[in-house]
Structures are given as structure tokens and as C-alpha cells.
Write a protein that binds this DNA or RNA. Sequence first.
DNA 1: GTCTATAAGATGATAGAC
DNA 2: GTCTATCATCTTATAGAC
Lengths: 240, 240
Amino acid sequence: MSEEQPTTTNPSPPVPEPPDLAARPARSSLPGNGADAGPKSERTRQRILDAAARTFRDKGFAGTTLNDIAVAARLRAGSIYYHFDSKERLLEEVLDIGIARVSAAVRRAIEALPPETSPADRIRTGIEAHLRSLLYHGEYTSASFRIFGQAPPDVRTRMLSRRRAYADDWRRMLQDARAAGEIHPDRDLALARMFLFGALNWSVEWYDPEKGSLDDFVREAAETFLHGILAPPNEAPPVA
Amino acid sequence: MSEEQPTTTNPSPPVPEPPDLAARPARSSLPGNGADAGPKSERTRQRILDAAARTFRDKGFAGTTLNDIAVAARLRAGSIYYHFDSKERLLEEVLDIGIARVSAAVRRAIEALPPETSPADRIRTGIEAHLRSLLYHGEYTSASFRIFGQAPPDVRTRMLSRRRAYADDWRRMLQDARAAGEIHPDRDLALARMFLFGALNWSVEWYDPEKGSLDDFVREAAETFLHGILAPPNEAPPVA
DNA sequence: GTCTATAAGATGATAGAC
DNA sequence: GTCTATCATCTTATAGAC
């Protein structure tokens, strides 16, 4: 896994104390871009969040100590508490950002399609968008799927509505396809959906960007789900 | 959960039997080992192992304390060290047993097929056997897949050869099917295999035995992988 | 805002009684 | 073989200096 840090950052931020701000701008809990500008506090908070996402994803929730996060964020463990109430709240925010990003990415990709796009093609696009948001700079998104099962019960409960909403998006897409006659009549849609989630999210564990283009990968993943692996029944075996 | 034998489910006796200690390290029952521990020690050891498998699976490796395991095994935390050197070794044995059982179950199921069975049908049988060993009394097997990613690096390294061997079994099955012309020429077999693993192993997280028979479930899972979800191109019955 | 220091409790592991 | 007692360390979280 990723044991090493990129370490392309500057040695130490010699930023002098900015003029004290009387009014702190409201914390936009928008999915932070990490590099977002803004007050120093906000940027540090973002750095901690980024570090937490990466560390949680790599070592799990229980396996991550606040010191691990602090080291990755280049400060001391105690300082984290200025920005977050507890380790659990930190986890909660990482999970929340992750699922929100995937959800938004898929929704956006599908809304960008022409209205006449067939349900099956929408599914194809959804799969590709889901995978991209997982695999391309997907620290929060991959963490969100990888460690959700490790979260304390109350955290998981609080996350449930958001995750259910995302699941509902997929349920709807599949039902639309079925209503359009595009789904094989024997298929169990609930099973197919969970099957798909498992297959897609597992890619976080093994996908290697060096071994081929992401474009090819996501395309092939969608085809595999839609068509399965078998050759069409009619075509003769190529063996001579 | 606490009730055995729900009324509606489990009409399925033909389970390949929870492979009884398929891969026990088996060092203890050797006769020439001196007058060492009798069956009692072995049974306690087994109880600890069972408790560890269940607890590791449910709470993760780092999230499990030796006391958790001790409580589940009905003894004290310190007593575990009479049977196992460390928490890591305990994990290692759980992981090892799990992968060995799945591997053995799949191999046995396929070897039981008639020799003339087509490669595609072998894959079908393999999928069903893998799923069964995961979902039917699969404390070790499900733990093995669920927490492998959480294992300390050295443990993971030591497990690698066994897991690679299992992956090779699947690689071979898929290649055989391709050689027989049964796989769609566009499919990427490596991707398909990982896709399949993800889909199957994720079922541990959501499969509910109360919602339908295991037989139906494993059959449908195999069909979904083999054929995909789409309806055959020719017969698309639009809603009239 | 971030630091140092530390409280308060849990954890993996060991020693020795029984 | 299993227990109790305990060690050394680590962990989350807090307090107060700067």
C-alpha cells in the first residue's frame, strides 16, 4: 500500500502571522480541495482532514492514531483538537465528504448526458463516474468505502441517510433500465446492485494506474457488468 | 440472529459441508510429539481461534482486543498466551485457515464435476462454492477476506503465497474458458477476476440469509457475472 | 493556533500462584 | 492450563504556556 508520503511539499511554512481576523468566515464544510485558499485556520483544518482521509484509508480507523494523522499533517497530536472535537468526528467528516463527492460526481455525469440517453447508457456513465471519483485522487472517496464498515455504530448510523440516498440513485437507474426492457428478465436488481458496488469498490484495493489508462479501465469495468464475461451464444469459437 | 433454524429459509442441505478444519496447521495431533497436551488443550485452542475469527471479522484487527477474544472464548486474556504467541500469530492463523478453506472448497467442488464439464460451467461452480464457503458458517473465510487488508505488512507478506495460489486457480479457470472460446473476446480477464472477487467478497457485508435461500443466491450471482445484467440484444420487449 | 506536558485509561504481553 | 497481578507502553483527550 502507500507507505510513503509524496514529500513534494516545502520544508516548513514560513508564513508569518496573518492579521488577526475579528470575524472568522463561516466554515464552509464543502468538500475541501486541500489547496483551497482562505484563512490559515481553514487551511490547517483542511490539511488535517486530508491527512486523516489518507491515513484512515491506509490503516483503518482503529489502526490510526491521532499521532499518525498529526505527523502526516505536520503538526502535533494535541493541536488537532483545536480543529476537531474527537477522532470520531474527524472520521465522520471524512466519510461524509467521501460519499458526497462520489454521489455528486455520478449525479453530475448523468445530468450532463443528452436527455434521450438510454437507461443502460446512463448506468454505463454512472459506473465510469463512480470509478473515476474513487480512483483519481480519491482519498476521501476511497476512504469512505474502505473504512465505513469499521466506523463506530453511532457514526455509521449518522451516515446512513446519505449513503442510502446514493444507493437509491442506483436503485432508480436500474429500475428505469428494467422498465425500458433493457435488463435481462431473470436478473435480481438488488443483488446486481450490491454485486456492482462490491466489484467497483474493491478496485481501490488493487487498481494500479501504471498498468493502463483509467479511461480504458472504467470503460471495460462497465462493459463487464453490463454484458458479463461470456461470448455471445451465436458466435463460433475462434479455435480452428 | 440468536435463533437457529429460521422457518422459511435453509431448504439447502447440499452445502459442501463446512470444510472441517481443512487447513489446520495440524502440528499437534502427531503421535510422536511426546506426551503432550491431550484433546482438552486442543479444544480450548480451537475455541480461542473461533472466537478470534468472529471478533476479528466483526471489529477488525486493530479494533479487537485480546480481552474481546477472551470473553468470547470464556477465559481470561492472559490465558490466550498459553496457546498463541501473540495477537499477530492469532490473526495469521485465522487468515490462513480462512483462505485454505475457501480454496479447498472451490477445488473440491470443481473436481467433483464430470470431466466433460465446460469451462464456463466450471466457473459457475467455482463461484457458487466460493460464495457458500463464505456465507455458510464462514467465520474464518469471511474474516480472511474482510480483514486481510488490515493485517500488519509482515503478516500479509507471509500469507501471500497461499492467496496467490488461489488467485492462480481462478486465473487458470478463466484462461481455459477463453481458450475454449467461451469468453467474450473483448473481456479483460485480469479485470474480470478482480471484479468477481470484489463482488463475491462484498456479499459478506450485506447478504442476509433470511431474505432468500442461499442456493438461489449463489446461482443468481454466478449468472450475473457470466451474462451481465443486460437483456439479450434481440429480444427487447418494450412496454406496450 | 500550535506547542509542551500530562492526565486517565486501555492494551499487548509476562510472571508466578494454584 | 488457567488464573490473578502487574509492567511498560500507547492512546485519546485536556490544560495551560507561548
